[in-house]
Amino acid sequence: MGERRLRARPVSAAIALPFRVGARTLWRIRRQLQRVSLTLDQARSGTVPALPDACGDGYLIVSLAEASLAPLLADRPGLKPFVRQRYPRFFASLDLGFDAYLAGFSAKSRSTLKRKVRKLAERCGGTLDLRCYRTASEAEEFHRHARAVSAISYQERLLDAGMPDGEAALADLRARAARDAMRGWVLFLDERPISYLYAPAEGTTLVYAFLGYDPAHADLSPGTVLQFEAMRQLMEEGRFRLFDFTEGEGQHKRLFSTGEVACVDLLLLRPTVSNLAVGWSLTGFDRAVAVAKSLARHRTLEGLARRLRR
């Protein structure tokens, strides 16, 4: 475990903690928390965040390496820990070279990816219309096309995770582009945007920040095709070292990754009656959802087994 420690700023804010089933949030409870998010490099090195004393109701620590959990709790014995989720934080090394990267996929996955690319290319008239945006002069065009897709994507409608809108978001995009600290891609079909990906940079690491696709073209797998071709471009370019798929699990992230770090999202709460009620409520709800999912999978497998026995 690395010894470098991340020092969080003593700033807390009202954070809505979701009671979530899959992609759907049923309700939220607000607590005054300081959010501490670890970068990929910090998670990989086992950074233990040094938490200041003033923290409102406590802390929400995102993407803490699981190996750093015990040392962190030993530092803060007066706070009550609640693990919200455990997950692998996936990443991809961009300095492998695309041929070596592709060789890391199973034969079935390689065949499936190439088939999807070919299918969409044929629908585009023989060549994919994928455009990469990286300069300040291209920022406004990228933002316009990305917002057009985001507005109709399930990421924005169901997860509230769409490409940010407004002048402040556009100004940030321009500033990042001006210092070569972002990449954006838009995939077009018949001159209409159908998928986008926005990845800001932290040093030589690109961060998988916002993405979406037009559900009307889901049969063409536009998000998968865009990611595949974006990885090809990044490895040919050689500007960045890592692609960080950030916290949370998913088949898409697993497919395109080359490595992972076991991480947790952790609530550290002051042990007041109201805080403990919130923590135990979230924990109980999460466990109930996990049990329900497990039972649903079990019943599905039992049903399949019965059909096979007939």
Rank of each mutant, 00 (worst) to 15 (best):
V264N: 10
A199H: 03
A181Y: 02
L69E: 02
L173S: 00
T258G: 06
T39D: 00
L38G: 02
F142G: 00
L220C: 10
P52V: 09
T283L: 08
V278E: 01
S153L: 07
L187I: 14
F19E: 13
R44W: 04
G223N: 07
Y196N: 06
E249Y: 08
A8S: 12
P193I: 03
L301E: 15
F188P: 11
R309I: 04
G126V: 13
F245I: 07
R89I: 00
K108G: 02
A288N: 05
G248S: 15
R115T: 05
R306G: 04
F98M: 07
P222Q: 05
P164W: 05
D165Q: 11
A292T: 00
R287M: 14
G22C: 06
Q155D: 14
D172C: 10
T47L: 06
R118G: 10
E3K: 02
R147Q: 12
L276S: 12
P81E: 05
A74V: 12
H217R: 11
R35N: 02
H252C: 05
R254F: 10
R179C: 10
D219Y: 11
G303K: 09
Q233W: 14
K108R: 15
E237V: 05
D286I: 11
V273M: 08
F210I: 07
V48S: 04
Y133W: 11
S68R: 07
D57K: 04
P18R: 03
A67L: 09
E302N: 12
E122V: 05
D244K: 11
A171E: 14
S294N: 09
T112L: 13
A136G: 14
M182H: 06
R176T: 03
L189T: 01
V264Q: 13
I61D: 00
L120K: 04
K119Y: 06
L206C: 13
T39Q: 02
V273P: 00
G203I: 09
S274G: 04
V264I: 15
G248A: 12
R20M: 13
G78R: 11
R144V: 03
T246P: 10
G56P: 03
R30L: 05
V186M: 07
L242C: 09
P18L: 03
R232F: 08
V11K: 08
E66T: 08
L113P: 01
M231G: 00
R24N: 02
R147K: 13
G284T: 06
S68N: 10
R35Q: 15
F19L: 15
R131H: 10
A305K: 14
M231L: 12
V62N: 07
S153C: 02
A146S: 12
V289N: 04
G166M: 04
A8N: 01
Q85V: 01
L226Y: 02
A216E: 12
W280K: 03
S106G: 15
G162P: 03
V36Q: 04
F256I: 14
R123V: 12
L308A: 08
A230G: 05
V149C: 13
L72W: 03
L94W: 06
E140Y: 02
F19C: 12
S93K: 06
V207W: 00
E122I: 05
T283R: 00
